[in-house]
Design a protein around this nucleic acid. Structure first.
Lengths: 320, 320
DNA sequence: CTGAAAGCGCTTACAG
DNA sequence: CTGAAAGCGCTTACAG
C-alpha cells in the first residue's frame, strides 16, 4: 500500500476499499501517527494558521478578544498563532516577519503602532484584518469600535445625572482610541450646552497607574469636578483608588465611569459603570472577516453597537 | 548561483565570497524574501516552536505567565504557540494533538485536567514542562508553586491580627491547588491551636461569581467569622463585592485575603492583601526548563518563595 | 480504487 | 568556496 493511499484515507479524499481503510486506521491508532502539519502545509501551500498580533498577550482588555478569535477559528479548522506587539513598532515588525515566514494564511492585528502605509504594504503579501482603526486598502479589512459614540453615551449619562463639572482622564496622546473618546466627551458636553474646560482633561496611560496619578493631579489642581470619565476601565480602577486614598467616596463624592466593561468591572466595589464594547465579539468578527477574505469574499461584518452599562459608581452629584 | 549557496548565506553556515553575499542580501531585501519556516522545519526536523497549553488564553492569572514564556523564548529564537485547554480534558487532548501534529519541539502545560498517566505517555513523544503539579516521569519536568506555604502565610497573618473565626472559600474540589491551599489553611489554624470548623469552609469556583455566592452562603449560614481567606484573588474580589452588597465593610467588619496577587489586586478598593507567587517568573522558568531539556540537560530550575503582600483588606477584628 | 512520480522550499553531506 | 543531489513528509495530477 502506498503512502498516497494513506494520505487519501486520512483526508477522505478518494474512495478506498473498506478493508484497506480499516487496516490503515488501525495502524494509525497503533503507531500514534499524526500527519506532519509542516509537510502538509508545504505541499498544500497553506498553513491553516492565522497570525494574531495583540499588544500584550496578557492584556485584560484584549484577552477576551483573543479568546473569541481562538474559539471561532478552532471550530473551523484553523489555529491562531498569538504574538505580543508590545505597543512597539519594532516589535510589531518582528511579529509580522515571524508570521510571514511561517506562511500564516492571514493576520489579524489588534490596534498597535504600525503605520497605515506599512500595513498596506504587508497586505500585498497576506490578507489583513485590523481593529482599532479605519483603513481602506486592498486586502485589508478594518473593524472599528464606535469609540466616539461610547464616550458620548458615558458623558451624557453623567450629564443626565446632573453633573456639570466632568473631568476626563485621557489615554496616550497619539492613540486613536483616546482621541475618538475625547471627541465623544466634548460632543456630549457641547450637546448639553456645557462649556468644555481644558483644565479638567488630563493625560493617563491606559493603565491603573496613570489613572491614579491623573486623579491625584486633578484633585491637587483645585479645579472642582463631581464626575470623572476615564478613557478605559483600567484607568477608572486607578481613579477609584486615588479617590479612596484621598478620603473621597465613589460615587458619593465623585462619580466614575470607565470604558471597555472588563469582566472584573462588575465585581469592583462599587461595581463600575462602563461602556461595553464586546471585545469577544470583536475577536469573533475578526476571525469571521478573515475567513471570508480567505474565501475570496469581501467581508460583510459589522460590530454590535456600544452600550452603556450603568452600575453603582455613578450617582447624582451631592447637593452643596 | 545555487539555492544551496543562498541557504548558506542566510544561515551564515559557510564562508561565502563577499560579492555573492552582497548580491544575495540585496536580492533578499529587494524581493522581500523570507525563508519558509515550514520547509526549514521539515528539513531540519525541528520547528523552533514551543507549544503552550494554558487553560484560558485570557486568564488574568496565567496571562502574566504566558507573557513570561513568550519573552523568554523569543529572545532565544523560539516562538510560543498558545492554546486554551478550557479546563477540559477533551480540549486539552485536542490541543496536544494539534501541537504534536505541528511538531513543536516541546510543550509547556499550565495546570489542567490531563491525568499524570496521560502526560507520561505524551512525554514519550515530546518533552514536557508542567506546572501546578508534581509529577516525576521521564522527559517531564514539573514546577510547583508552594501553595501550602502560601496559604499558611495568609492564614497566619489573619491569626496574628487577632482573628479566630477564619472562613475559607475553596476552589473546585478535585483541584490540586485548592487542596494544597486548604491544607495550608488548616495547618496554620492547628499551629495556633485554633480548632478547625468545617462549617467555615465553603466551595467556590476560582472565579468572582463563586466568591460572591460562597460569601453570601457563609453570611446566611449564621456562622460567625471575622476574616475570609480566599483560594485566589478572583474569588476574593467576589467576596468583597458580596460583603459590600450585604452592607459590610472590608476590612472593618471582615478581613479578606486572596492568593495570586494579580496585578489589579493592588488597585482594588481597598487594595487586597494577597499571597504573591510571581506567575511571570513561573512562565520564564518554564521556558528556561524547556530549553534546558531541549539541550539534553536535566533542568535545575526552582521557583522563588511565595510571599505575603499585606495591603488594606486586612485589619484587626472589631472589638465586640 | 491505487501506485509511481513530481513537487512544495529548505538543508546538508558529498564532491569538486 | 560552491553546485548537484538526496531527503524531510506530505499531496495530487497522471496513469493504470
Amino acid at each position: 500500500m502506498s503512502i498516497a493511499t494513506v494520505s487519501r484515507i486520512i483526508n477522505g479524499t478518494a474512495k478506498v476499499s473498506p478493508e484497506r481503510k480499516d487496516a490503515v486506521e488501525a495502524a494509525i491508532a497503533k503507531l500514534n501517527f499524526r500527519p506532519n502539519a509542516a509537510a502538509r502545509g508545504l505541499a498544500l501551500g497553506k498553513s491553516n494558521t492565522i497570525g494574531v498580533i495583540t499588544q500584550a498577550i496578557d492584556s485584560p482588555f484584549y484577552g477576551e478578544g483573543l479568546r473569541g478569535i481562538e474559539d471561532y477559528l478552532q471550530q473551523r479548522g484553523y489555529t491562531a498563532l498569538f504574538m505580543s506587539g508590545n505597543w512597539d513598532e519594532q516589535d510589531e515588525e518582528r511579529c509580522m516577519a515571524e508570521l510571514l515566514s511561517r506562511r500564516v494564511d492571514g493576520i489579524i492585528i489588534f490596534s498597535g503602532r504600525l503605520q497605515d502605509r506599512q500595513l498596506a504594504s504587508y497586505a500585498k503579501q497576506v490578507p489583513l484584518v485590523v481593529s482599532g482603526r479605519s483603513l481602506k486598502a486592498p486586502n485589508i479589512f478594518s473593524l472599528q469600535v464606535d469609540d466616539e459614540r461610547g464616550a458620548w453615551l458615558a458623558t451624557r449619562h453623567l450629564i443626565e445625572l446632573g453633573h456639570r463639572r466632568i473631568a476626563f482622564i485621557a489615554g496616550i496622546l497619539d492613540h486613536p482610541d483616546a482621541s475618538l473618546r475625547f471627541k465623544g466627551y466634548r460632543r456630549a458636553l457641547a450637546d448639553a450646552g456645557i462649556a468644555h474646560d481644558p483644565k479638567l482633561v488630563v493625560p493617563g496611560d491606559f493603565h491603573e497607574e496613570g489613572g491614579v496619578e491623573a486623579t491625584l493631579r486633578l484633585l491637587k489642581s483645585g479645579n472642582k469636578f463631581s464626575a470623572l470619565f476615564c478613557v478605559n476601565d483600567q484607568t477608572a480602577y486607578g481613579a477609584c483608588l486615588a479617590l479612596h486614598r484621598s478620603g473621597l467616596n465613589c460615587p458619593r463624592d465623585v462619580s466614575v465611569v470607565g470604558f471597555d466593561d472588563l469582566h472584573s468591572s462588575s465585581y469592583r466595589v462599587p461595581p463600575l459603570t462602563s461602556v461595553r464594547q464586546s471585545i469577544r465579539v470583536l475577536g469573533e468578527s475578526s476571525g469571521a472577516a478573515m475567513l471570508q477574505m480567505l474565501q475570496g469574499e469581501q467581508p460583510d461584518i459589522s460590530l454590535p453597537q456600544v452600550e452603556l452599562i450603568v452600575r453603582e459608581s455613578t450617582a447624582a452629584p451631592a447637593k452643596e
